[in-house]
């Protein structure tokens, strides 16, 4: 069961913090983050990779769905 975060409309550093808190809380599994800024996409991707999570980014209509996974 994937966890979901809606980071749309939030400015720095809120999207990264939400993602980080969820990653720390879950430890592993799948987290889906919906973001609407390229800065949030880049920042969350960088943090997730740094923390050992896999990142997949899907762009859809001016929004980004980031899927973070760690087995």
């Amino acid at each position: 069961m994937a966890e979901h975060i809606d980071a749309r409309g939030l400015s720095c550093p809120q999207p990264v913090l939400l993602a980080r808190n969820k990653m720390n809380e879950a430890g592993s599994g799948t987290i889906e983050v919906l973001a609407d800024s390229a800065a949030a996409r880049d920042n969350i991707s960088r943090l997730a990779v740094q923390q050992g999570w896999g990142v997949n980014v899907e762009e859809r209509e001016n929004e980004f769905l980031l899927t973070l996974t760690r087995p």
Partner: peptide, 19 residues
């Protein structure tokens, strides 16, 4: 590059990110 001087210091303290 999202260049930001405040963010530089903030990210080091908050998320240990040196980008």
């Amino acid at each position: 590059t999202r260049f930001c001087t405040m963010g530089a210091i903030r990210d080091i303290i908050l998320v240990r990110d040196y980008y």
